[in-house]
Design a protein around this nucleic acid. Structure first.
Lengths: 233, 233
DNA sequence: GAATCTATTGGGGGTTTCCCGTAATTTTGG
DNA sequence: CCAAAATTACGGGAAACCCCCAATAGATTC
C-alpha cells in the first residue's frame, strides 16, 4: 500500500480497527492501538485491536490519568519505547492491569501532533524476546512513524469536517482577517496588509464574533481555532 | 508569526548542514533544507544544503510571506509533495525565483510539530523525471518522516535559548485569567469574578502575552489553545 | 427583478485595553 | 536563607477596540 496516498486510508470509524489489524499483520505486531484527542474541540477517538473489555476497564479505572505512556507522550515528540519508561507506581498499576487483559509491557508509542493542539498516539505491542523486539522496532519504526501521522491526519480531518458541518460559515474575508488577528495583528495592521480601511476590518471582526457567538475577539479567535477554521498564529 | 526575525537570529550550526548533506547522499536527493520555529520562544532555525545566496534572496524578498510550502505546512500534518500545491500567483513567484538559484520545483516538505507550538519543516528536492520522483519518494518517505522528527527534536532541545523558553510556564493565576479571557470575559469581568482589581488582571494578561511571545491578547489566547494550556471558552 | 448576503468605507463616541511607571506582600526555588 | 518570581494593587495617558448609525456596489439567490 502506498503510505503517502491518504485516499487509501479508511474513512469510516468502523474501519480504523480493521486498519490497525492490518498494521499488526504487516509489521508482525501482536496489538496496535490509536488514541487521538483534540482538546480544543473536546473530542476523543480511540481504536484498538484488543477487545473492548480493556478499553472499558481503562476508562472505568481512569487509567488515562496515570498512564505513563500518555504522560511521556505529552511532552515528547520522538517515539517512546515502553522499556524506557520509569518503573514507578503508576507504571506498575497500569501494566499489571494490562497484563491481566493479555497486553504485554513490551511496546512502543509514537506521538503525533496537529496544528490545533490535537495529539495522536499510535501504540504497538509484541510479546517476544528483548533482542527480537529491538530488531523489529528498528526495522519498522519509520513506517510506523508515517502511519501514525497519516492515521492521525485522517481521523482529525474527518473530525474537523464533521464538526464544521454544525458550525457557522465565516466568509473567506472574515476568516482571513480573523487569521491575522490570531497572528497578533491589530485592526490597523490588518487594514494595511489587506489594503483596506481599518474600519472595514472592524466590521468583519464584528460579524465574525456574531457568527461565532463570541463576546470578544479573543474568544472568537479561540473558538475559531477550536472548530478548526483557523490555526494559531 | 514573523519569519523576518531570521535576520536577527543568525544561527550557524554546521552540524546540521553536514547532516542534511548526508541525508541527500543517502536518499539520492539534490538538496535538503530544514526550517524550525518556536513561536512561543520566538526562535527560528534554518539549515540548507544549497548556497546562502538563496537564503539571502529569500529573506530580502520576504518570500516567507507567500511561500506556498510554508502556507501549506502550517495547517498540514502530512508530508506535502510540491506537485500538489496550487499553481497560483505566489507559487509562480517563489518557484521562478528558486529556479534562478538552481532549485527545482520538484520536492517534498514534511512538517513536524512539537508539544509547545513549535514547528519544523524538512524539505528535499531532486531534479528528475516525474516517475522517477514518485518512485523515490514512496521509497524514502518513511525514513524522511523519522528524520524530520529526529532533526526537529534535536534542534529544539539542543538550543540553549530555546531550551529555557521551550516550555513557557504560565502561573496558575495567569492560566486562570487567560482561560476567562478565552471565555469572552473583559478585564473588568474577570476582576469581579476573581475579586481582584481589573488592573491586576491586566498585569497577568500582559505577563501571559510576554511568556507566550504574543503581541495581543487574541494571539496569546490562540497560542495557549494551540499549545493546549487552555481550552476555547 | 427584488431580496439577500458580502465587502467596502465612513462618522461619532464611549469603553477597553495597553504601556509606562511604582510598590506592597506572598510564594517559590536554588 | 536569600533571591527571584508571583500576586496583589494603583494611576495617567495613549492607543485600540467596540457599538451605534448610514451608504454604495457587486454577487447570489429566490
Amino acid at each position: 500500500m502506498d503510505i503517502v496516498d491518504l485516499s487509501t486510508l479508511p474513512e469510516q470509524d468502523s474501519r480504523y480497527d480493521e486498519f490497525l489489524r492490518q498494521v499488526c499483520d504487516k509489521y508482525e505486531m501482536d496489538h496496535a492501538a490509536y488514541a487521538g484527542m483534540n482538546p480544543a474541540a473536546g473530542t476523543i477517538h480511540g481504536h484498538v485491536t484488543y477487545g473492548d473489555d480493556w478499553k472499558v476497564h481503562y476508562q472505568e479505572q481512569g487509567l488515562h490519568l496515570i498512564d505513563p505512556t500518555l504522560h511521556m507522550s505529552q511532552r515528547s515528540i520522538a517515539p517512546v519505547d515502553w522499556s524506557r519508561l520509569e518503573r514507578g507506581k503508576d507504571f506498575q498499576r497500569v501494566f499489571r492491569d494490562a497484563h491481566d487483559f493479555g497486553i504485554p509491557d513490551q511496546g512502543i508509542t509514537i506521538p503525533v501532533r496537529g496544528p490545533y493542539g490535537d495529539i495522536g498516539l499510535l501504540s504497538a505491542t509484541r510479546e517476544c524476546s528483548r533482542d527480537e523486539w529491538k530488531k523489529l522496532v528498528s526495522s519498522v519504526i519509520s513506517d510506523l512513524q508515517s502511519l501514525a501521522v497519516h492515521i492521525h491526519d485522517n481521523v482529525m480531518t474527518s473530525d474537523t469536517i464533521s464538526r464544521m458541518l454544525y458550525h457557522p460559515t465565516l466568509s473567506s474575508r472574515e476568516l482571513e482577517i480573523l487569521q491575522w488577528a490570531a497572528a497578533g495583528k491589530s485592526q490597523q495592521d490588518i487594514g494595511d496588509i489587506l489594503s483596506i480601511s481599518h474600519r472595514t476590518v472592524e466590521v468583519h471582526l464584528r460579524s465574525s464574533r456574531e457568527k461565532l457567538n463570541a463576546l470578544t475577539t479573543p474568544q472568537a479567535v479561540g473558538r475559531a481555532i477550536g472548530i478548526g477554521l483557523i490555526y494559531p498564529g
